[in-house]
């Protein structure tokens, strides 16, 4: 075999065209899952091939790419994907949210408010919100076509009946543009409100399941709930130990084997920026930490 040269962002132009056609259809029908012929990529299915294909299809040479996983730029899979695009597309990359034009993410929405100049690409494992209630694809397709979503509310009803409240913590189903029920990907429900009326274009890629969907900018996105049990965001009741933020989603970090724990911002860039621009946050009692 001779040395290969790859096309810009790895995929050939035919494939990119196919994906873009699917994306256009998805944007035209917000929240609807468009089937597409997902390609085998150099990383395994389940590790972001859908997101990578969507990003590859929308990326241009002048774009600035940010890749995060669990909110952080430095998690191994985010590093791996960023390197992939640096190598195959030669695009500039960044960890700063407001500098990026394309952001590929797994399981979080950045804390920073996004702008019209940005595209957010979500990695999606299971695109079908009804899947766990109805395993058959033929049936779920019909349910979406006929807007038969009663069974979703049955699930929420059961949660309240048994637990007193809705017990979905992430991948919390939403209704898009008053029509399609959609799975926002396994982001914590804390992030759902950010999807509503967002200025950026939101694209969702599920490589293994071969589906693409989209939320155009400024689209209504409502989390499913009951009138008397309204949707609630959840975050740890604490401030970030590094930057003091009380409005960001926190990761719990175990610091010793005696039950010591602390909370830090999941969004690493957001946390860093806060620390750069603000004086050091007061340390919570009980930790002997000092700022590095």
């Amino acid at each position: 075999m001779s040395e290969r040269t790859y096309n810009f962002a790895y995929l050939d132009e035919q494939t990119k065209r196919m994906i873009r056609r699917a994306l256009l259809k998805a944007v035209a029908i917000p929240g609807y899952q468009v089937p597409f012929a997902s390609r085998e990529m150099p990383m395994p299915y389940g590790w972001g091939t859908g997101g990578v294909q969507v990003t590859a299809a929308v990326l241009g040479p002048d774009d600035m790419l940010k890749v995060i996983d669990q909110g952080a730029d430095d998690t191994t899979n985010a590093v791996s994907i960023r390197k992939f695009f640096a190598k195959t597309a030669g695009v500039r990359t960044t960890t700063h949210t407001e500098e990026a034009t394309v952001i590929q993410t797994r399981h979080r929405v950045p804390e920073q408010k996004l702008t019209e100049a940005q595209i957010l690409v979500y990695q999606v494992p299971i695109p079908e919100p009804l899947r766990f209630l109805e395993p058959r694809e033929t049936e779920t397709r019909r349910m979406h076509a006929l807007a038969e979503y009663g069974v979703m509310h049955v699930k929420l009803y059961e949660d309240i009946a048994h637990h007193g409240h809705i017990s979905t913590a992430y991948a919390y189903p939403v209704c898009v543009a008053d029509r399609y029920v959609m799975d926002p990907s396994p982001t914590p429900k804390f992030d759902n409100p950010k999807m509503d009326n967002c200025a950026a274009l939101q694209l969702f890629g599920a490589g293994r399941e071969k589906r693409i969907y989209a939320i155009p900018p400024y689209t209504k996105v409502v989390s499913l709930d009951f009138e008397d049990h309204p949707f609630e965001r959840y975050r740890h009741d604490a401030a970030c130990a590094l930057c003091g933020a009380t409005d960001s989603y926190l990761d719990e970090v175990i610091i010793d084997d005696r039950g010591g724990r602390m909370f830090v911002c999941s969004d690493s860039d957001y946390c860093e920026r806060r620390r750069e621009s603000a004086p050091p946050a007061p340390q919570p009692a009980g930790t002997d930490a000092s700022h590095a």
Binding site: P44, Y45, R208
Partner: peptide
């Protein structure tokens, strides 16, 4: 791919479940 993807970090969602 999907079975082995469970090795990827899932702590953000796990945190949410933990809280619940």
């Amino acid at each position: 791919g999907f079975v082995e993807h469970l090795k990827l970090p899932h702590y953000v969602d796990f945190q949410a479940e933990l809280g619940l």
